[in-house]
């Protein structure tokens, strides 16, 4: 067992790019679910359009990265509008089903062989991140080496950009949620009929919330795609959204930094368990009948599911949340 490598990957997960991408996804989801009470189960789709926005623009049509970013953001806005118009008038559980369905539709389109020319079908797209790394001010440097934790120059660049995006998003969410605009959102979460009776256009606020959270999610998609330098349709499946929910609830719904802290804890734990198990099964620590390498891969999902259940039952306000402010506890 190589414990030092296990510890170093786990520590790196505190600020790693996956943590960033999920933090952004969860910040967006927190706007939807934590503040507005919208059960959006299609958050993965917003990351997906962000990621594919860049990938298709650059890899398929050889346009610039910036155009890709613009298209990714525009696509997130359009997706929010398309999703919102039919669903925002629906009851909470209908919304959940329709958003999850919409996310699956989009994923199936990325996969479709008829669209291989543009999306690369199930293989996805690669080689679209050159422009981004060309901008890297750290290029050629040694990156960061703190002994246990190391980041290459390339990783350093995506971390700087990613954390900037995370902090900016948090700032925007903070400003909004301490304003009267945020007050309306929270009130909608509590009882939208009451808000309507006070003369607020509930539909429009929900739509604004959906767009905002979706755009923040698309930022996460950018980070995800650029970090991996590849996009693949199945990354953006339902599990992605469920992970993001777990993160939001873990960190405490309706808290500005909740998703960020949640994402850090989530990924450190997950990476630690994942790498310990895979080390263990590679080194035949467990007998073959108990756990093979491929079985070790499914353990993370089992743990996330279990964690989500336990959190909701015993600590619905998350680690840092205030029980009185969270919609999840008793009625």
């Amino acid at each position: 067992m190589n414990w030092s490598s296990i510890f170093s990957v786990s520590l790196e997960a505190i600020i790693g790019s996956t943590t960033i991408a999920y933090a952004l996804a969860a910040i967006g989801l927190n706007v939807h679910f934590g503040y507005t009470g919208l059960l959006n189960f299609g958050q993965s789709a917003f990351l997906g359009v962000g990621a594919y926005g860049i990938a298709i623009t650059v890899a398929t049509f050889s346009q610039s990265l910036w155009l890709g970013v613009a298209i990714g953001l525009a696509a997130a806005v359009i997706l929010a509008l398309l999703l919102g118009i039919p669903t925002l008038r629906l009851r909470a559980d209908y919304l959940a089903i329709v958003t999850i369905a919409a996310a699956e539709i989009i994923r199936l389109f990325y996969r479709a062989t008829d669209l291989r020319k543009w999306t690369g079908a199930s293989d996805g797209l690669q080689s679209f991140s050159q422009d981004f790394y060309d901008l890297n001010p750290f290029a050629g440097s040694k990156g960061i080496d703190l002994g246990l934790i190391t980041f290459t120059d390339r990783e350093l660049w995506i971390l700087v950009v990613g954390w900037t995006l995370v902090l900016l998003s948090c700032l925007v969410v903070y400003l909004l949620m301490s304003s009267p605009w945020g007050r309306v959102l929270k009130a909608i979460r509590e009882d939208e009929d009451a808000v309507r009776s006070l003369g607020k256009n509930v539909f429009s606020y929900k739509m604004q919330s959906l767009v905002l959270g979706g755009v923040i999610g698309a930022l996460g998609g950018f980070v995800f795609a650029l970090d991996r330098a590849a996009v693949q349709p199945d990354t953006y499946g339902t599990e992605f959204t469920f992970f993001a929910y777990t993160i939001v609830i873990l960190g405490g719904a309706a808290r500005v930094f909740g998703p960020v802290v949640g994402s850090m804890i989530f990924w450190v734990l997950l990476v630690f368990i994942d790498s310990t198990l895979s080390e263990a099964s590679n080194n035949k620590v467990f007998p073959e009948w108990f756990m093979t390498t491929s079985q070790a891969g499914s353990v993370r999902y089992i743990l996330v599911g279990l964690g989500l259940i336990l959190l909701l039952i015993y600590r619905p306000q998350g680690i840092f949340g205030d029980k009185r402010e969270v919609m999840l506890d008793g009625r």
């Binding site: 925007v172 400003l175 909004l176 301490s178 304003s179 009267p180 605009w181 945020g182 007050r183 309306v184 607020k200 604004q208 905002l212």
Partner: peptide, 10 residues
């Protein structure tokens, strides 16, 4: 303060 953009400017 109930409009999006102005909400950002306290």
């Amino acid at each position: 303060g109930e409009t999006f953009w102005r909400a950002l400017l306290p």
